[in-house]
Design a binder for these strands. Structure first.
Length: 258
DNA sequence: ATGGTAGCATCGCTA
C-alpha cells in the first residue's frame, strides 16, 4: 500500500497539479492538508474519476483536511474522537483504509513562542495523543500523517543556531512529538534514513529558499511499529515543489506492506 | 536591510 501526505496550500489553486501527481505516482491512500475549502466545494467527483473514495473535513478559507483512498474508506471521524475537547478548526480527519487506521493532521503553526497560538499548538498536540488513546491502540496498524509544523531533530533544519527562540524546533513542541513516539508512533522517514541531514519537506516561498536548499522537514508519516517494521521505503518527492504554482510543501510517501 | 511570496473571503491576515 502506497501512502502519501501532502500539504497542498489550497486545493482550489493546486487541483491540476495534484491530479497530475496522483496519475503519475498512483498512491493508494492520500492525506491532504490545507485544502482551504468548505465541504460543499471539495472536488470529490474529480477524485472519484481517478479511482478514489474521499472524505473531507473543511471550513473554507483556512485549514481543511482530507483522506482519499483506493482501498476502502470506512469509520470516518472528523475532529478529535469523542471524549476529547473538540477543535474549533478543521485540522484532523480519521478513517480506516484497507485495514489501516489513518489520520490526516494539520497541526497549528504556533506563530511565535509568546503567542496564544503557540499554547494552542501545544494543547492541540496533547489532544492528538488523547485522540489516539480514544480512537485506537498502538498494537494495531495506525498511521498519522500530516503537517506537524515541528522539525523533530536538529538535522531536519538548515542551522539550528539560526532558529533560537523560534517555533517548530522548541523543546515543548519536540517533547509533544516524543510523547506521540512514546505512545507507539515511529517517524517513517527517519526509520528508513537514520543518517539523513537537511532533507526537507517544506520551503518558504520567499527569498528563493527552495533554490537555496533552505527548508525544514515538518511533514511526517508516523506509524505504529507493525506498520513501520514492514514498510519498504519512505521518501520526499521534492520534484513536486518545482515548476509553476507549487505548494510550499512536498509530498512525503511510503510503501507499506499492510 | 527585520526584507521576501503566495493564497484567501484582499487594503490585512495566515503561513
Amino acid at each position: 500500500m502506497r501512502v502519501v501526505t501532502w500539504n497542498v496550500n489550497s486545493l482550489r489553486a493546486r487541483l491540476e497539479r495534484v491530479e497530475a501527481w496522483l496519475v503519475e505516482v498512483e498512491p493508494d491512500v492520500v492525506l491532504l492538508q490545507e485544502t482551504k475549502l468548505a465541504d460543499d466545494a471539495f472536488p470529490s467527483l474529480t477524485f472519484e474519476a481517478l479511482g478514489y473514495a474521499s472524505a473531507h473535513y473543511g471550513q473554507g478559507q483556512w485549514n481543511g483536511v482530507a483522506i482519499l483512498s483506493k482501498v476502502g474508506l470506512d469509520h470516518v471521524v472528523t475532529n478529535f474522537a469523542g471524549g476529547v475537547e473538540p477543535d474549533p478548526d478543521a485540522r484532523i480527519i480519521t478513517a480506516t483504509c484497507g485495514g489501516l487506521r489513518v489520520s490526516s493532521v494539520y497541526v497549528p503553526n504556533g506563530r511565535s513562542l509568546d503567542h496564544d497560538h503557540y499554547r494552542y499548538k501545544l494543547e492541540w498536540l496533547d489532544r492528538l495523543r488523547a485522540h489516539l488513546e480514544a480512537d485506537t491502540h498502538p498494537d494495531r496498524p495506525v498511521l498519522v500523517g500530516g503537517d506537524y509544523n515541528i522539525a523533530p531533530d536538529d538535522r531536519d533544519v538548515v542551522d539550528i543556531a539560526e532558529l533560537a527562540g523560534a517555533t517548530h524546533v522548541s523543546e515543548p513542541e519536540r517533547s509533544r512529538l516524543a510523547a506521540l513516539h512514546d505512545w507507539g508512533l515511529v517517524d517513517l522517514f527517519r526509520h528508513h534514513h537514520p543518517d539523513a541531514e537537511r532533507v526537507f519537506s517544506w520551503w518558504d516561498y520567499r527569498n528563493g529558499d527552495f533554490h537555496k536548499g533552505r527548508g525544514m522537514r515538518i511533514d511526517l508519516l508516523l506509524a505504529t511499529p507493525s506498520v513501520a517494521g514492514t514498510s519498504q521505503w519512505c521518501l520526499i518527492d521534492r520534484n513536486a515543489r518545482k515548476g509553476k504554482q507549487p505548494s510550499d510543501h512536498a509530498p512525503v510517501l511510503a510503501e507499506l506492506s499492510v
